[in-house]
């Protein structure tokens, strides 16, 4: 009876140990990435767009992030908030601290000038809907090109072909190289993530 009891105890201990081991292994990697953020470097060369040096990327407070100097505009790595943002379209700007965390989870940020033409925004909205689990789409005040595509350590910039120069935000016919945007999203989504990606 006692030997049988010990067998049960060992089996139970084995299950508990296996469940505990999940905390530091596999997809979850609680210790490795979920808590600490990402170290500098570590991402392969960008298949599209240009490489941007990867900064040390710890989790910081809202107060601390105001003093951060990122290596690009918009940023593609660097200090960020400890929580991330759901993918999808946003009508207001999303803080850099959130966008960077989304990139760290393997998502792609499509950021556009707030005065981007209506046609451009509509095209981007359709792309964001089709790639709803990969893309964060939001306006980005102070952006020089019409659209910036950001992934972890990668950046691409696009201008609309027609209406940007005239700054006609109501122009529904203004065109954007949608194929280039889609190619960037498909090539860069899920290329990097620091673990714990749901």
């Amino acid at each position: 009876m006692t030997a049988r009891r010990w067998l049960w105890r060992v089996a139970l201990l084995g299950v508990v140990t296996a469940l505990g081991a999940l905390l530091v292994s596999g997809t979850w990697q609680l210790v490795a990435g979920g808590v600490t953020g990402s170290p500098p470097g570590g991402a392969p060369p960008c298949p599209l767009g240009r490489d941007v040096p990867i900064m040390d990327s710890p989790h910081v407070s809202q107060h601390a992030i105001t003093g951060v100097q990122y290596t690009s505009t918009p940023p593609t790595s660097g200090p960020h908030f400890s929580f991330t943002v759901a993918t999808g379209a946003y009508s207001s700007p999303v803080p850099d601290g959130l966008t960077v965390h989304a990139l760290e989870h393997g998502h792609v940020a499509i950021l556009y000038r707030p005065d981007a033409p209506e046609g451009v925004r509509r095209t981007l909205g359709a792309i964001a809907r089709r790639h709803s689990t990969d893309v964060v789409l939001a306006p980005y005040p102070g952006l020089r090109p019409t659209v910036a595509l950001a992934a972890w350590g990668c950046l691409d910039e696009l201008d609309a072909t027609a209406a940007t120069a005239a700054a006609d935000t109501t122009d529904a016919t203004a065109a954007l190289d949608a194929g280039r945007v889609t190619a960037f999203v498909e090539a860069l989504a899920d290329r990097y993530h620091h673990g714990w990606r749901g």
Binding site: L22, T27, W28, F83
Partner: peptide, 27 residues
Amino acid sequence: LTFGLPVLVGLIQWVVVNLGSMSPTSI
């Protein structure tokens, strides 16, 4: 592990770093 812990850790870290920043002017 898949849905609850990441949210919990993110929220707790957010609370800790913001309280630690001692910046009462920030929301």
